[in-house]
Simulated scan of single mutants.
Amino acid sequence: MTLTSQNRYAIDPEAAKGFDTEALRRHFHVGDLFAPGEIRLVYTHYDRLILGSAVVDAAPLVLDHMAETGTPGFLDRREMGILCLADAGTVSVGGSRHEMAREEILYIGMGAGPITFETGRFYILSAPAHQSHPTRLIRHAEARRVELGAPETANERTIFQYLHPDVCDSCQLVMGITRFKAGSVWNTMPAHVHDRRMEAYLYFDIPEAQRVFHFMGQPQETRHMVIANEEAIISPPWSIHCGAGTSAYAFCWAMAGDNVDFTDMDMIAMEDLR
C-alpha cells in the first residue's frame, strides 16, 4: 500500500491578492487526487481539515497513521466522513463492515481505530474531534434534501445534507452533496462567506470536455480557477466560494470550524462583488 501526504499552509487574503494562476492553484487547488492502489491525503492548516482519497486496486488499503496528525492512530483525536464514488464499496472499521453504494457517506467517530478500504473508490474528509460519536452509514435516501434555485437563474439544484445536525451527530465536520438540474450551472450566487469555518469542495460528474469555473477571494478582490472532473478546492474562511460550469455537475462540500449550522452565512450583495 502507498500512502502519500502533503501540507497546505494557510494563506492570508493580502497575500492571495498578488497570486497568479499558478500560485492560486498551488495553494488552493488539489489535482491528481485519485490513484489506483493509493491513499492520498492533504493536511490543510485551515481548521486542520484533511481531505484525500482511497482507491482500492489489487489489495485492501489500511489507513492507520499519518505523521501530520501527531498521534499514533489517525482517528485518535479525529472524526471522518467517507464518500463512496464507485458503484459499490466496502469499508471496515471498529470490527464492523460497511457495504456502501455510490453517493453514500460513512461517518466514523473519534477513536474508532484503523480504517480498511476493502473495495471501491472513496473521497475522504477528516477534522479534529473532542468526543466520540457512533460510526454510522448514511444512505442516500437518509440525507436531508433541500431544493433550491430556479431555471430562470440557472441555479436549480438539490442539496443532500449527510453530516448535518438534523441527520447525524458529529463534532465539527459537516458534509454533503449538491447536484444540479440539467441547464443549471451556478452555485451559489449571490455569493457568501463564513469567516467562522473553512470549506472544501470536490467537483465530480463533470463531463470530460467540460469544466467548472470556481470563484474565490474576498468579495472585492475575486479570483477564479478552472476545475476538471474529480478535482478539489480548499476554500479559506475569508473567501467567497461559488462556481459556474459549462454543463451541469455535482460537488461534495465539507466544512470544519466553529459552527455546524449550514445556514450560518454572511451574504454578499451582487453589487458588492468585484
Rank of each mutant, 00 (worst) to 15 (best):
V56Y: 00
A112M: 03
M255K: 03
V146Q: 11
F251I: 05
L148N: 10
P236D: 10
G89R: 15
Y123T: 07
A127S: 15
T21W: 00
I234Q: 06
P151Q: 06
T153L: 12
I138G: 06
A58I: 05
E68P: 00
R223T: 07
N229M: 02
G109Q: 02
P190Y: 13
A141H: 11
H133I: 12
V193K: 13
F74L: 13
A141E: 14
C168S: 07
H194N: 14
W186F: 08
R211T: 11
M267G: 09
F117H: 09
P60Q: 08
T119N: 10
L83D: 10
E199S: 10
E14D: 13
T178S: 09
L41H: 03
G81P: 12
F180V: 03
S126Q: 06
V93N: 14
P114T: 03
P207R: 06
G149S: 00
D57Y: 02
V93P: 12
Q172T: 07
R78D: 08
A248D: 04
R136C: 07
S235T: 12
P36G: 03
S92H: 14
E22C: 03
G176F: 05
R97W: 09
G113A: 10
A228M: 01
H133E: 13
I138R: 13
S5P: 01
V30Q: 04
F117R: 04
R40C: 01
I159W: 11
A67F: 05
D166R: 08
E156I: 02
A112L: 04
A101E: 11
T90F: 12
V174M: 04
F28R: 09
A112R: 02
S5M: 12
W186H: 06
A54Y: 00
D32A: 07
P165G: 14
L163D: 00
P219L: 09
G95E: 15
D169S: 13
T116F: 11
A15F: 06
H140Q: 12
E38K: 08
Y203Q: 13
P36N: 04
L33V: 05
R77C: 07
T21Y: 02
E118P: 01
V55H: 02
S235H: 12
L163S: 01
C168Q: 15
P60L: 08
S92R: 15
P128Y: 15
E199P: 00
Q218A: 11
C242G: 05
G95D: 15
P114W: 03
L273Y: 15
R144M: 10
I138H: 08
T44L: 08
A228L: 02
P13K: 08
H133W: 11
Q218R: 10
A244K: 02
Y203E: 12
H214N: 14
T90P: 08
L83Q: 14
M216G: 13
V91S: 15
D195K: 06
G94F: 10
A154D: 03
G95A: 15
L41I: 06
